[in-house]
């Protein structure tokens, strides 16, 4: 089990304190835990369960119920592709095909270089700009297959610049 004594562990303890180690606030706790680790590692799930006085099964139950929680690390850039109604009507299937073709990953997968994770979501609330995708915090609207690929290439370049 995680002794959670490193930097991240300290941050996690602060989160647990903030919520009074109350299992009734499990969702909020897990959201902030995920902010710290990028996902929910299994030893951390055990730790949270022990600290909030509940069972690992209960915590796991919550973590797997909600789409926001991830049990595996994600890529540097998380592509959230909208598959809501408006985006569907305006061709989000073709955008998905272009992305999976370009990156060689399917929904839920991460590229080998750890750069991109693709995740289909239901409605980002920008339906009038459909089809829409969000990469990390940035939203891109009125997509076409070509435009989507272009944007991905922009992000690939960004990485090179940093490196």
């Amino acid at each position: 089990m995680c002794d959670c004594k490193d930097e991240k562990g300290k941050a996690l303890d602060a989160v647990l304190d903030e919520y009074g180690r109350d299992a009734g606030s499990l969702i909020g706790i897990l959201q902030k835990t995920q902010d710290i680790y990028g996902y929910l590692p299994s030893d951390v799930i055990y730790y949270v369960a022990a600290q909030t006085g509940t069972t690992p099964a209960k915590v796991m139950g919550v973590a797997t119920f909600y789409t926001q929680f991830r049990l595996e690390p994600v890529g540097k850039y998380l592509i959230m592709l909208c598959k809501g109604t408006a985006c569907h009507v305006n061709g989000s299937d073709r955008i998905e095909a272009a992305i999976t073709n370009e990156l060689g990953i399917q929904n839920g997968e991460t590229t080998k270089d750890g750069l991109f994770t693709l995740k289909n979501v239901a409605c980002l609330g920008c339906c009038s700009l459909s089809p829409v995708m969000m990469i990390n915090e940035e939203t891109f609207g009125s997509l076409t297959p070509d435009k989507a690929v272009e944007i991905l290439n922009e992000f690939k370049k960004r990485k090179e610049e940093i490196a």
């Binding site: 909208c82 109604t85 408006a86 409605c123 609330g125 920008c126």
Partner: peptide
């Protein structure tokens, strides 16, 4: 919670 995908 605005769950209807296509409403905002």
């Amino acid at each position: 919670d605005e769950g209807d995908p296509g409403a905002f």
